[in-house]
Simulated scan of single mutants.
Amino acid sequence: MDAPRDELADLVELIMTLSRKISVRSTTGAGIDLGTVEALAMGLITATPGLTSGQIAAELNLKSSNASTTLRSLEQRGFLERHHDPADGRVIRVYPTAKARQNLALKREAWAATLLAAHPDPAQLTALLPALKALDDALTTPDLRPPPEPR
């Protein structure tokens, strides 16, 4: 690997490590009932309600069985609802509940508090947002369009 590739690989490794550390530190004792993969799934479901299990699995790079297990657990705990697609009753779409939105808001607040406690200059961190958002947009699966509303 050449230097720029090494640095890019280092960046990815650091982002993944930071994600795990922030997740662990922000949920300890915070009364938040979502694990890391569950929070990622709920963030995706909240941002784009009405996705299918397959779309969620593809976007989060999960095996379909792991996505199904995660979604089943979230549904049993009252974080999501499943509805038949009005255009094709064979398709099941997933929607967040009010409980999910509330729990995700708690998690986001805990994430922010963790960063504020760890870094003296939040503006320095938020200056990274445009570049990271553009990267996220470039890596997002193009077929994640909002589906029709449930009946």
Rank of each mutant, 00 (worst) to 15 (best):
Q76P: 04
T17K: 11
V12T: 13
R108V: 08
Y95A: 06
A100S: 13
K99L: 09
Y95K: 01
I56S: 05
D33E: 15
T97G: 13
E75C: 03
L8I: 01
L80D: 00
A131P: 02
A134D: 15
R5D: 00
A9C: 11
P120W: 03
L106H: 11
L11M: 12
A138Q: 13
T70C: 07
E109G: 03
P142Q: 02
Q55C: 04
K63Q: 06
S53I: 04
Q124A: 15
N61T: 09
A98V: 15
S73L: 06
R82Y: 05
G43D: 14
S53W: 01
G78M: 08
P148R: 14
A57C: 09
L129F: 15
L104T: 04
M1Q: 07
F79E: 05
A134P: 04
L132N: 09
V24C: 08
I22D: 00
A41H: 00
M1R: 01
T140K: 03
T28I: 06
E81Q: 10
R72P: 05
A123Y: 09
P122W: 06
M42E: 11
R93H: 05
T28F: 08
T114G: 08
D136G: 12
L18R: 09
E7L: 11
S19Y: 07
A47S: 10
S23R: 02
M1P: 11
E13N: 13
T36F: 06
L135H: 14
L128R: 06
D10N: 11
G54Y: 08
L8D: 14
A87Y: 06
Y95L: 01
V91S: 02
E75R: 06
P120M: 02
T114S: 11
G78C: 08
G29A: 05
T52Y: 02
P148W: 05
A112S: 09
A127T: 10
M1I: 02
G89E: 11
L125P: 09
G78D: 08
S26F: 06
A41T: 09
V94S: 01
K63G: 10
V94W: 00
I56V: 12
I45E: 01
A98M: 13
G29L: 03
A30F: 03
K99F: 04
L34I: 02
S65V: 08
G89H: 09
T52K: 07
L14V: 05
S23D: 13
M16S: 12
A3T: 00
R82L: 06
R108A: 14
R77N: 12
L129P: 04
P147S: 07
Q124I: 08
D121H: 03
T69V: 08
T36E: 10
D33L: 11
L116M: 08
A58Q: 10
P86G: 09
L115D: 02
V94M: 03
K133F: 13
P120V: 00
P147L: 00
L125D: 12
L125R: 12
Q55L: 05
L34W: 01
N61Y: 05
E81D: 15
A100V: 04
L106E: 12
G50D: 14
K107D: 10
L129Q: 14
A100E: 11
L139Y: 10
L132K: 03
F79W: 06
G35M: 07
N103G: 15
T46Y: 07
D33S: 14
K21E: 06
M42F: 02
L104K: 01
L106M: 10
L139N: 13
W111L: 05
P146Q: 15
T141V: 10
L62V: 07
L8A: 15
V12E: 14
L116C: 09
G35V: 04
T28S: 11
A30W: 03
L129C: 11
